[in-house]
């Protein structure tokens, strides 16, 4: 690709890559999971964009439009495998409507009773005590837009909370998912603590 074309591709990111913070955010990232109260704390950098998002009480956060978890299932020999979950945040941060999604994948998360620690891996739906972690970020300002899907992190993810009532097929459509992630990707470093209410499931056939 020629330089001019490359610059064209990259300019939306460069135009909108300022730090993303919540009011009062500052200080060290958390060193452990912050507990069962629904929250999302995301501190570090992703695609070089500084993030310091500390929403420690989702229900009290006026700028949060949507905070929801989704469990996804795929067919397996013994029924549905619980292969991944997604955490969606839609919030107005620094006056900009921003969508941030976190996703964690494993061959079958049902095989890992909480607390369960996973080594982050580059492959999708890895078997054993490994997981694939992805961060997605989307927003638009007058200067440009950010649209990033960032996979291939290394580090660890620890699941500390999995609640909800399974139906006859083993699908769990409600409850909470909580955990802690410490991840690296090139020069990016990211720490996440979350507890998210599950509002949706998907069967990917």
């Amino acid at each position: 690709m020629r330089l001019a074309a490359l610059a064209l591709v990259l300019c939306p990111l460069a135009a909108a890559a300022e730090a993303v913070t919540t009011a009062g955010a500052a200080g060290e990232p958390p060193s452990a999971w912050l507990g069962e109260r629904p929250h999302l704390v995301l501190v570090g950098t992703a695609a070089g964009i500084p993030l310091d998002i500390r929403i420690e009480d989702i229900e009290a956060a006026e700028d949060v439009v949507r905070f929801a978890g989704k469990r996804e299932y795929r067919p397996g020999e013994g029924g549905w495998r619980y292969t991944n979950f997604e955490i969606l945040l839609e919030a107005v941060l620094d006056g900009v409507e921003r969508t941030i999604e976190l996703e964690l994948e494993n061959h079958d998360l049902r095989e890992h009773a909480v607390p369960a620690e996973f080594a982050l891996a580059a492959e999708n739906f890895p078997e054993g005590e490994r997981a694939f972690f992805e961060v997605q970020m989307e927003w638009e300002t007058a200067d440009g837009s950010v649209n990033e899907e960032l996979g291939g992190w290394t580090g660890t993810a620890t699941l500390l909370l999995e609640t909800g009532e399974a139906d006859a097929e083993g699908i769990v459509p409600d409850g909470l998912i909580g955990g802690f992630v410490a991840a690296e990707r090139g020069t990016d470093r990211l720490v996440a603590s979350f507890t998210v209410p599950v509002t949706e499931t998907e069967r990917d056939e």
Partner: peptide, 11 residues
Amino acid sequence: LVMMDDQNAGF
């Protein structure tokens, strides 16, 4: 020309 936009105001 009509184009779909994935990031419109109000999510």
